[in-house]
Nucleic acid binder design. Structure first.
Lengths: 153, 153
DNA sequence: TCCATTTTAATAATCATTATAACCTTACAA
DNA sequence: TTGTAAGGTTATAATGATTATTAAAATGGA
């Protein structure tokens, strides 16, 4: 999986009309280049190291503003919680129901069809803003370390 | 959108090892042929008419057992709640962020690519069980009845 | 440096979903 | 039929992610 590196800068924060705070700079640092698709809680816990009094609302607020501005993606692939992805170039996701990790899947590996839905802006007359392709199953690692198909479906 | 009609019968409940109860029969009746992608609450409220003391747990329990058996799909397209779809043949979904309706999108209108992910069982070594394609935006009706792009993104 | 504005932190509220436990019903077989 | 074990239903509480609220603190332009 090679996805073009993207990096959110403090200048972009300002361009979005957001103030630059230490909390936000730290959050950007955690997000930039991150391919683990962290949840808000993952990020919160990492931020706790440097900001022992940081609040959940701070994390959620900034994340949703970044998502609103299209700087990150809010993924809907984890049945339990939102996951965040700083890579906004078109790609899909695979969720392992055993280890709950989220893997990138290139959009060269895509559902087939006559039209290219990924870049579609109109489908059946509806205006399409986002397209998410969610694959779910058991990842290679969990499959390999599993004796006798414990995780059938 | 034409999707092959599928119908869940009481015999199928029994084959699943589930007992046939009036509540479950009523739920099947609500689901069969239903193209509105109802939430658990939608179904609960419809069931309340005939079963004034029905509980939410009954609805959720049966829905998750039906989903487990592959008789219905649990959709992840609505950011707020699960939506349920009795049509299990491959197709995609469009969610309108204004009216919150979910529309079917044929899998003939699909993200393009070399491989057919919809039927893929292996991607990058991972075992794929389900593939969901989620489109989101503003539906035709809401777009048409909207003055001057109130719903940009 | 000042100050209007935004952000943060702490806390409470929300809300969909899941868990629990007592009671009830179904299916099956005697 | 009718008894009974297994499973289902209801009512309720618990869970857990996310959102809302508000006073205090920090930011950034003047």
């Amino acid at each position: 999986m090679i996805i073009k590196m993207e990096r959110i800068t403090v200048v972009e924060l300002q361009q979005m009309g957001l103030k630059v705070t230490p909390q936000r700079e730290a959050l950007l640092k955690l997000l930039n280049g991150n391919e683990t698709h962290p949840s808000a809680e993952d990020l919160y816990h990492k931020l706790l190291r440097r900001f022992p009094r940081i609040s959940f609302a701070t994390v959620y607020n900034t994340l949703s503003k970044l998502a609103e501005a299209g700087k990150i993606q809010e993924l809907d692939i984890d049945p339990q919680r939102k996951r965040f992805d700083p890579f906004t170039a078109p790609h899909h996701h695979f969720y392992c129901k055993v280890c709950r990790r989220v893997f990138n899947v290139g959009d060269d590996v895509s559902p087939s069809g006559a039209e290219n839905l990924l870049n579609a802006t109109d489908v059946n007359g509806h205006r399409v803003d986002t397209v998410h392709v969610n694959l779910r199953g058991v990842c290679k690692d969990c499959k390999d370390s599993d004796e006798a198909g414990k995780w059938q479906q």
